[in-house]
Design a protein around this nucleic acid. Structure first.
Lengths: 249, 249
DNA sequence: TCCACAATTTGCGCCAGCGCAAAGACGTTG
DNA sequence: CAACGTCTTTGCGCTGGCGCAAATTGTGGA
């Protein structure tokens, strides 16, 4: 067997393989290659010809773009089970972002001919890919809307909450974001500067909403951040509101 | 025959039907319905269940989103030949944007079962749809990057140039943007206010870069706008630079 | 253990862009 | 042609957020 049981499990649960029957899934795994990268290495760079699609099995991957003048923008982080570089199913396209390993990473890989062949055998696979791309469009549209209409503090709050949902780990004190996350990183995710992020965080800490060490963030009162993200007034009483409010979709 | 020859031509040239042979294209047209809307009417609204995909044949369509607090954001304008609502090929999804007719519009329409059937007959059609979605992802990623890193004047310049490429019409004086385009509209496209757009335009007019009447914009010196969009210094000599510079990709 | 480097905080100055109000320009309609 | 509604401009005040420099606090490695 090429892969460990836990690797197989993660792959089996990946969104792109959802609802595949074993007869469809087995050939997929058989055709896969494992690609392991260390911290800071790149699966691919923006503008490279897109020839390989991946499913992340272990670790975290950071998606970035670089502006012409060298400024970096972080589009987001991937967690195990997420597909990336799926654009490689198309001929003659380039990756629109760079994919960088954050810590040690393992990912399954398929080149275009292989993946195309698999999709022909399994329409559901192609459909899933389509659905994922549709989701990405939606996500970026929302991102555009956020950047257009919200101010920095709200955007930072949203970014933190997004990360918490993806990579959050419950601890005694609250939800720890399980990523090395600097002020600079958050600035690049929200279109601001590390200084402004630092000030925002200091304010939040003063209010007891979050705690943070260097490159590490813990959310103490998620509800408080949601209030900020939604631009709702933050009353003293809010701490007693039911936490199952569906404000956060 | 259901459609006029010019309608057929526009459809034939639509990106989504690119490289289809007649044997593939004919059933597509046969299955199409024509949907005509007047100014301000909506093909669909954000959050509606997505059941119909369209190809615009005549007129312009505006794509918008509304923020929870009622602010509108313009994602872009469509011109004849563009597909929209393509997300409807998937089951159980909702439109992520609203599509509003700007002036009188005609569009071909297919419901999901029909379009899915067509795609099964014509893999190329499905592939084109995929490619279009990939292009949209790329476009929105760039938009996010712009909003994160550029300042208002640059973003407005880019928006104007984008519109000019899509809907520009050459006149004696320059390139006329063939759309009713208010300051408010530009503000909603670039994430700023109509006041700021107004001030930016006044400045550009003073410099002779553009001319504008109410709801109407003409670019007099495209190269000048490109310089602003690229954040390059605008020297007096620039007017003499070769216009085929590949700065604008 | 100590050093060198990376991340963070903080003070200070500044200005791009927002918000609002009011006035002006333009089109449209009865 | 008069009156109304919409779009646009402009003045004014204000502030959120940027930029930079310098101090401070970790942290990982030699």
């Amino acid at each position: 067997m090429k892969f460990s049981p836990s690797e197989l499990d993660t792959a089996r649960d990946a969104v792109i393989f959802r609802d595949l029957i074993d007869a469809e899934f087995d050939p997929v795994i058989t055709a896969a290659t494992l690609r392991e990268l260390g911290d800071g290495a790149y699966y691919f760079m923006e503008e490279d010809p897109a020839n390989t699609a991946y499913v992340l099995i272990e670790g975290k991957v950071k998606l970035t773009q670089i502006t012409p003048d060298g400024q970096q923008v972080i589009l987001g982080y991937l967690v195990p089970g997420r597909v990336f570089g799926i654009i490689a199913i198309l001929k003659k396209v380039t990756y629109p972002v760079s994919a960088e390993a954050v810590g040690k990473c393992r990912a399954l890989a398929w080149d275009r001919p292989t993946m195309n062949g698999l999709m022909e055998q399994s329409p559901r696979l192609a459909l899933n890919a389509l659905r994922i791309m549709a989701g990405q469009i939606r996500e970026f549209q929302n991102r555009v809307r956020e950047l257009s209409t919200q101010r920095v503090e709200q955007r930072v709050a949203r970014a933190v909450l997004r990360l918490a949902r993806q990579s959050g780990r419950k601890t005694e004190q609250g939800v720890l974001i399980d990523l090395p996350l600097s002020r600079q990183d958050l600035a690049e995710m929200t279109g601001t500067t590390l200084f402004t992020v630092s000030r925002v965080f200091k304010e939040w800490e003063k209010r007891g909403l979050v705690a943070s060490k260097r490159q590490q963030v813990t959310i103490l009162i998620p509800h408080g951040l949601v209030m900020i993200a939604e631009d709702l007034p933050l009353n003293v009483d809010d701490a007693n509101l039911p936490t199952d409010s569906n404000l956060w979709v």
